[in-house]
Design a protein around this nucleic acid. Structure first.
Length: 418
DNA sequence: TCTGGGGTCCTAGGACCC
DNA sequence: TCTGGGGTCCTAGGACCC
């Protein structure tokens, strides 16, 4: 059996955790630059605040209903996530952290009643972190997702834990679940399926396997099997990322290549730090730039370049050089750039590096990077930068930022004794 | 005025090989 | 007029996830 444990309205719950006066009130969290909605409390959902809606479009709702708005505080969410995951790891020898707010647990060998087990996890996490979670348990990962959906949706009845462990429950659940809400069926597939009269997960589960394979590839077939109770996905105990991306929508539009180049350099340096943290080397990278996609149609330009590196490296210097030279090749004057990014890929493990006879990463960079990482970790990022990076740190729009309660000693919560 | 960021996997088709 | 057959590898782009 698999459990899927998912934090309820995770970012909003993190904010409320340190500000209990917000309990019962509508809360939303915005993306970088206070751009659009990325988390909503149940109260905010009920008021009609949609997911991923631009902030300015809900301004009237915010004012009319006194919705409390937060700027994204990723240091806080990342730290809270670690705490939640750490507690949950005690409930199974195998934990797959699927995203910042959810994980799968392998429950093979658990003797306790599954519903109770789920409830126990839930109250444990709630007590120790203040974050409410929902637990779905079933014989396949996809059905565990379905069970989780039910646990959350009918919290009053389930208490936040639901188990699909019989044909009766499986069929009842699938008949209830709309096909577009199945894990793995997105907008495109949902349209196709509805066109042939499939409305529910149950109707999907009865489709002919060949038809599904032809129209939805191997993923569709796996989905079909999983919904029918046959395991097609196992725990994925992932070690390392296969790609690392740093991309940003800028707070302003850039026209000068030097300015863009500084930002790209910083993206590459940041990505390189992450690369070194997971002890990998990278063999290629993509740089992309783009004008404002919401702007005037005739002023649009976007381009990307995938460059192979002459040798595997994790050096910030070498990676940022490669990135800026890629930028030089795609940059065009007379455009106003609003978005750009660097994506590292094609990794190998540090330990599996085969030096080449002719071209290799500069060996001196290894200890240099170690020292830079050490200093930046100790004194806060980034005391040390490359000269090619921008001099001042860019300030994104964050008008509703909460303190970093759990990761910065100067911002810990203060308790006043009366 | 204002419109996010970070991932994974699959497939079709091109380039190349014999 | 007729113009083989069987492979592998790589990549861009699509679809999906949170």
């Amino acid at each position: 059996m698999f459990a899927l444990v998912d934090c309820n309205n995770f970012y909003a719950s993190c904010e409320r955790m340190f500000n209990p006066s917000l309990n019962g009130k509508p809360v939303v969290v915005l993306s970088n630059n206070d751009g659009c909605v990325i988390a909503r409390s149940n109260e905010a959902k009920a008021l009609g605040v949609g997911m991923a809606v631009p902030a300015f479009q809900i301004q009237h709702l915010v004012e009319r209903n006194q919705i409390v708005v937060f700027s994204a505080n990723f240091p806080l969410y990342g730290d809270m996530s670690q705490r939640v995951m750490s507690i949950l790891s005690g409930y199974s020898p195998e934990q797959e952290i699927y995203s910042i707010d959810e994980c799968f647990l392998n429950l093979d060998g658990i003797q306790e009643d599954f519903t109770d087990y789920g409830l126990r996890m839930r109250s444990h996490v709630l007590k120790w972190t203040g974050i409410p979670v929902s637990v779905g348990i079933a014989p396949t990962k996809t059905l565990a997702k379905v069970a989780n959906h039910i646990a959350k949706k009918f919290h009053d009845r389930t208490g936040g834990s639901y188990v699909i462990d019989s044909e009766l429950r499986r069929i009842k659940a699938l008949k209830w679940l709309k096909v577009e809400d199945v894990w793995g069926i997105g907008r495109r597939q949902a349209i196709k399926l509805k066109a042939i009269g499939v409305q529910t997960a149950y109707e999907f589960s009865l489709l002919d396997k060949e038809w599904v394979r032809r129209h939805m590839t191997i993923n569709g077939v796996k989905l079909l099997e999983e919904l029918n109770g046959q395991k097609a996905h196992d725990m994925e105990l992932k070690e390392k990322r296969q790609s690392i991306a740093i991309t940003r929508t800028f707070e302003k539009e850039y026209t000068k290549q030097e300015e863009l180049s500084e930002r790209i350099t910083t993206f590459a340096v940041t990505a390189a730090e992450k690369l070194r943290r997971q002890k990998s080397f990278c063999r290629s990278l993509i740089v992309f730039i783009s004008t404002n996609r919401f702007g005037d149609a005739c002023e649009q330009y976007s381009n990307s370049l995938h460059v192979k590196l002459p040798f595997p490296t994790s050096s910030s210097i070498e990676l940022s050089k490669a990135a800026t030279s890629a930028l030089n090749r795609i940059f065009k004057n007379d455009f106003r750039y609003k978005r750009a990014g660097v994506i590292l890929m094609d990794f190998i493990n540090e330990t599996e590096l085969q030096p080449s006879l002719f071209f290799n990463s500069d060996p001196r960079h290894k200890s240099l990077m170690q020292t830079i990482d050490k200093l930046n970790n100790k004194f806060g990022n980034p005391v040390l930068k490359l000269a090619a990076q921008e001099f001042r740190t860019w300030k994104m729009k964050q008008e509703h930022l909460s303190p970093r309660y759990t990761t910065n000693i100067n911002e810990v919560i203060r308790v006043k004794l009366l």
